[in-house]
Design a protein around this nucleic acid. Sequence first.
DNA 1: TTGTATGCGTTATCAG
DNA 2: CTGATAACGCATACAA
Lengths: 349, 349
Amino acid sequence: MTRDPGGTPPGWRSVRKPASIKDVAAAADVSPTTVSHVLSGRRPVAEETAARVRSVVNRLGYVPASLARSLQAGFTSVVGLLIPDISNAFFADLAKGAEDAAHDLGYSLILCNTEFDPEREDRYLGMIRSRFIDGMVYAAGSPPSRQRLEALLGSFPIALADEEVEGLEGALIATADHEAGGRFVGNHLRELGHRRALALTGPRGLKSSTARASGFRQAFRGDVVERIGDFKESSGHRLVAEFLAEQRNLDATAIFAANDLMAFGAIAALREAGLAVPRDVSVVGFDDIRVASLSSPALTTVRQPAYDVGRTATAQLLQYAARGAVPPASRHTLPVELQVRDSTAQPAR
Amino acid sequence: MTRDPGGTPPGWRSVRKPASIKDVAAAADVSPTTVSHVLSGRRPVAEETAARVRSVVNRLGYVPASLARSLQAGFTSVVGLLIPDISNAFFADLAKGAEDAAHDLGYSLILCNTEFDPEREDRYLGMIRSRFIDGMVYAAGSPPSRQRLEALLGSFPIALADEEVEGLEGALIATADHEAGGRFVGNHLRELGHRRALALTGPRGLKSSTARASGFRQAFRGDVVERIGDFKESSGHRLVAEFLAEQRNLDATAIFAANDLMAFGAIAALREAGLAVPRDVSVVGFDDIRVASLSSPALTTVRQPAYDVGRTATAQLLQYAARGAVPPASRHTLPVELQVRDSTAQPAR
DNA sequence: TTGTATGCGTTATCAG
DNA sequence: CTGATAACGCATACAA
């Protein structure tokens, strides 16, 4: 990318060239070295000299170029956060936790929103190879990334957040206890008297999704039919509509959706088919996004500590990345919590 | 900040030192210049030479250090987005628009989440002075920032998103049509038959809030009592609770909240006081965040094009910032839309 | 078609 | 207490 290829159009105010450390040094009649030390305090400077330098710094509005500083230092104090969709409340909370942790450690955070687009993801992962960021918190929520990650994982500071990538061991990972979440839901529905359920999962190859489903089956103990979705509201809607169309009568009395969004899609589809929640069918989500408690009926769901996942992953990562180290494998499992609300009840019959 | 002050603990895998352009040049038996040109294509290179270089590049996994490139080029292709709270759906959507625009133009986006904390805001604004970012999209949603901004606005590429800062003219700004939104609400309530309303505003000094209120008054034409809040759910709750406590009987039949969050707070407070929405009181919000359509009752509100505001502000800003120019004053007003749902009805009287 | 020398702005090293 | 010099890694003007 070339700066100003055709010349700046007339009338544009150009950013005036900022003062450099040399300018300050010249104006204060000292060496750049001294200016640097006045500002950093890394070695003693005569008070008189220091005062003179500071005055020039103020007058010229000098601020050290962080770019040059980083080049010399070998690190940037910037960390990336790769997520599929910031407008999904779960990832927004995760991002908030990541940003907080980064800020606390003196880091800035680059938002890498991929929209599930592999090309976009590639471009962002490139930032770590070009050493523009010191590390990457990876929360892609989409499976195809494995190959790309494999090459990076051993050589660069990367942390997995929320989602472990199947086949990729040896990573630093912070995740909610998906399996426990699944078990909580299974227990809850079983205790209510449900015996046959429809499970709407996330994409194949996502460990979180698998873990939830497996915990659920284990605790539910009844019949479970599975349908594979993609975490979007539309897919929840479609899967349930298809399911209803496929069979004469709905034999499942409960639906366990892979996330709240899909649960809402499912509820919409049920409504359109004339089925009431929870009277005819109980529905459970996962995540406990804000909407869950405000919607009607309020959604029974599993609260995932999105903020903590983001915060933990970032804090752990930076502990290593800040020293130029690749984090060793370690797992941080955060507790989840069942939120029983109004979308689940005993089966009608 | 010093890298690795105490020496890296034993057992830590350090990031191996990446290949530089010199390493590649040496291994391919050419000059760094040639390597540079093979990669950039900015001048012809003999196919044989180029092939050799490319092979070495692959073998060493060489990726140009973007830091050094930026230092030499004088710009970073990074833009900042300053917002108060990414977990607020409005700002999450705005961020998504900003990120999309940035990505389309080859930029990365640094998320500056301030939590309304002036110190944090200062730190982030410093990034623009240290030239780590080429520009800043400013959507602080909080008034105190004026002084800080003033110094920057004329000299650095900054765009205001959603919120203009009172007293700061001459800026590039993209905003929703707040006044029209207020008018829409005023008309709607008047047409329903309301004559006396409570307006819950945002913080003093926010032009968006003022504009909404003024549009509202103008179109409503009835009595309006104003209470000042801070855009948070809790403040909506508190203001309404206080309002109810202050007077014997609730004489307002409608509430216009400065945003959806405050509207939900208001509804909660009304419920606690035994008042039903919309039977006893109509409530209108602003923003149309996702919850608004899913809550019960579904909230009548004004849809703000958050994504477009973020996208427009960023795209416009980068048009200048990418060429090292300060954007001239210009205003981009985006249309809003009244969403009539179930939280408004004729007054009971 | 290729290479040499220089500079981007800073900090670390070494010398005084 | 202070300064000259080199180096970070790259791109470019100039030279051949």
